[in-house]
Amino acid sequence: MELAELQSAWNLVNVDVQRKDILDEQAVRTRIRRSSGTELAGIKRALQFKFLIGTTVAVIAIGASLGSALAPREFHPLDFLFSARETTLFYGTLSVSLCCMLFFNHRAYRFIGALERSTEDVKTSLERFIQVMERAMRFNIYSDTFMSPVFFTWFYYAYAFREHDLDWDIRGLLLVLLPVLVGVFSFFFQKYMQHLKFGRYLDRLKYYLQSLDAKKED
């Protein structure tokens, strides 16, 4: 089939579209109010959910940290696990890591929002889309890398030092090593998961981008 033949067949598509597909104003109005189902919209919705949960927990953690610091006798919700001082530290570190997570999520959200409103040519849009996807993935990895070590280390601390004092023995050494190990593991695990989810999709988009670059293609 030559392009001329393609053109004559395309004229049939033109007729078809006019005959079958045209919607009235009301139908168009209804459709623009529906939500998007793209990959980016999915990531954005997940970030919104994380943001909502994260903010709620962060506010509670900050409140609990202040409460246990200012009135340790009256406010001691984790007395079955920690001392008053440890409870303040636990909520304090939880607040800091949640704030870090929220910061990275917020940045990813802003990048996606800016991309959704842009109307650049196909090549520029692809470049930006890939960049934003990679950044959103990176921020997602960072936010989880911050959270996991905090939880694991405090759980370990609650378990291992329930009946022992903190000292420079094997338990103490593990307490120092655990956040590093969990952090490293969490980073690579998240990286792998993100690659599994979006890796091939991104590779495909990169291939399209390359096919729009005269120098790279040649």
Binding site: S35, S36, R117, S118, T119
Partner: peptide, 26 residues
């Protein structure tokens, strides 16, 4: 549906510098 939603989201950035149809195609 997806194109319509995206067009509506990005409509504020259409300032008439290009033709409407060019923007639509993009």
């Amino acid at each position: 549906q997806e194109i319509l939603v995206q067009l509506w989201k990005s409509y504020p950035s259409f300032r008439g510098e290009a033709q409407f149809s060019t923007w639509l195609y993009r």
